[in-house]
Simulated scan of single mutants.
Amino acid sequence: MKSVTMVSAGALAVVLNVVPSTQAIADAIHRSGTEHSVGLPGPNGALSADRDKDKDKDKDKGKGEKGDRGQRGPRGFQGHQGHQGPQGFQGVPGATGAQGPQGEQGDPGATGAQGAQGEQGDVGATGAQGDPGVQGPQGDAGAQGFQGDAGAQGPQGDTGAQGPQGFQGETGAQGDPGTLDTYVVAGEADVATSTALCFDNDVATGGGYQAADGTTVDRNSPVFAAIGAPATGWQAHTVAPPEGFQAFAVCAVVP
């Protein structure tokens, strides 16, 4: 039951208790469907207070004047949420938006793990033969080698047959005192090994060398033509620069 206050034109206000008609409720259910709830329609507006009076007065004249429109009924209760409708058609894709500004540079990522070692590659082809190098300069001549050692002594010959002893000769006269004829031979100068040899069959009775002060000499000796034979010259050798170095021999003439 709803309590509604209505005021008709030219009449006092009265309070009416109005019940919605059965037809109004049925219309509301029909319009909303069985699965939806809607608010009930409001009550019909109240008639004027002199309705019956006018009806009796104008009974022969037909329907009386229309009463004032009743106030709007209260808002019905909120209906239940309806079922989800089917999904609509796919809309037309929108236009591509403008390119956004480039973002800031991100921080460098962490270093990745060391990859596995690859397989051994094939051996490359042999390269082309290079051009011959430039001929180097001629080297300096080497120093003269030392005097080679004398050869081995030959075998002793067979002793000849003993001849007959001769007669004892007479004693000869005393001879004049003898003399020794000598000379000096110089070897090649400014070389590390300098050798001075006597002439012909002459023999060396001595020898030596001349050199600058402080010169180191590691050889200074006579030269022999054969083992057991007399010396035939002199030889000297230095390990220092040979400038001014020279050997010499003192030779005696053999008649």
Rank of each mutant, 00 (worst) to 15 (best):
D190F: 09
Q87T: 11
K57T: 10
D131A: 14
D50P: 01
T216N: 14
S48P: 13
G163L: 08
D60C: 02
G207I: 02
A28V: 08
A229P: 00
R31A: 07
G94W: 03
R51W: 15
S48H: 11
A211Q: 02
Q84W: 11
A95Y: 04
G244K: 13
P93W: 04
A186K: 08
G121K: 01
D54K: 15
Q81H: 06
M6C: 15
Q117E: 14
A204M: 07
L47D: 13
G97C: 03
G130W: 12
V4P: 05
A125Y: 02
A189H: 06
D58C: 06
T179V: 04
P43S: 00
R72N: 07
T193Y: 05
P222D: 03
R219A: 05
L47V: 09
Q23N: 07
G172T: 07
V253E: 12
D218C: 04
G85R: 12
V92Q: 10
R51Y: 12
H237E: 07
A240E: 14
G10L: 13
Q84V: 12
T232I: 04
L40N: 12
A186Q: 15
F146I: 00
P177S: 13
A236G: 11
Q71H: 09
A186F: 15
S221E: 15
D50I: 13
D200A: 03
G208T: 03
G10N: 07
D190I: 02
G124K: 03
D181E: 15
S32A: 15
V92N: 08
G88H: 03
K59T: 02
G207F: 06
G160E: 03
K63V: 05
A152G: 09
D68G: 08
F199K: 13
K63P: 12
T232Y: 12
G130P: 03
V134P: 15
V18G: 06
L180C: 08
Q105V: 12
G208I: 01
G70Q: 03
D58E: 08
A150D: 11
D54N: 12
G133R: 05
E188S: 10
K63W: 01
L180G: 08
Q99S: 14
H237Q: 10
G169K: 00
V217S: 01
G85T: 10
G233V: 00
G136Y: 06
L40V: 09
V134H: 09
Q138N: 10
V223F: 00
P137R: 00
N201V: 04
D218A: 04
P155Q: 08
R219G: 06
D60V: 07
A196P: 04
P132N: 02
G228K: 01
V123E: 10
N17E: 14
C251R: 02
G178I: 05
D190M: 03
G62L: 06
R69I: 06
A49N: 09
L12T: 03
G151Y: 11
